[in-house]
Nucleic acid binder design. Sequence first.
DNA 1: CCTGAAAAGGTGTACGT
DNA 2: ACGTACACCTTTTCAGG
Lengths: 156, 156
Amino acid sequence: MMDTTNTDDLDKRILRAIAKNGRISVQALGDSVGLSPSPVARRLKRLEERGIVTGYSAMIDETALGFGVSVFVSVKLDRQIDDALQAFEKAILAFPEVVDCWLMTGNRDYLLRVVTRSMAEFEKFLVGSLTKVKGVAEIESSIPLRRVKQTGSRTP
Amino acid sequence: MMDTTNTDDLDKRILRAIAKNGRISVQALGDSVGLSPSPVARRLKRLEERGIVTGYSAMIDETALGFGVSVFVSVKLDRQIDDALQAFEKAILAFPEVVDCWLMTGNRDYLLRVVTRSMAEFEKFLVGSLTKVKGVAEIESSIPLRRVKQTGSRTP
DNA sequence: CCTGAAAAGGTGTACGT
DNA sequence: ACGTACACCTTTTCAGG
């Protein structure tokens, strides 16, 4: 059984273009892929509806805004039942400090990236917010020195 | 001496809004922050010029593009001299499979996120590319089940 | 599934406050 | 530094191939 994704080459070119410039106009998109604006708009809408394009975002320089601290945090929950996972994830989604979160295989723990203005603010987040989330059993922080590469997402 | 970032509350609300929806119109932005379109456009332009807004991007479900495999890879180098780090980083920047890379404190190892079409392609990258980079001593892979949160960047 | 044209809606500039 | 007005451009919708 083959998983026909239903995204053709034109869609892929549209995706590449909007990955590079999320505010590009439908017209310019049409020019770049060789289509008139209306089909591009239709395809874009369809890509959004199908959940392939999950949204659009401005890329903001965190350090320019004073958020100089970025920390990787590994979190283990004390139970691994679905309820605990759901409760944890709901809390995570509400914390602005958490910019990225993955559920890992293995011990079913989470890997987060937490961004704050300072170490003091990070500590406050850790003891004031994260440790207070129900089900959190273990927390391990790793501090990066610097970011070597940032692509956002892969493109062919 | 106070570090007045020169971004006031209005700017911050604009940043929050465009982080959440990078394709929002200037008009809608104006409505949401209580300003008419022209000042919003002026502020937006200024935020871009000052490098606070570095660009716009569509958030794309990588799996939709056929990149179903995402793996966190931890890499230790056998020597921690600057030359080794530089050589390693140069290699990393050239690999399209590596979408994100951080130099970590502590044991001075690297944390990468590697994205491929399949496990077979991942393995090929691992044995064919990553292990062949000079200085690589230890590699540990962690496989995520799914992404829980993807914010791109922190907002004020 | 595409084009093209017309209606609706958004943008950018100039100027007034 | 914000608002309004207006000309211009972009998006959307719909008829037709």
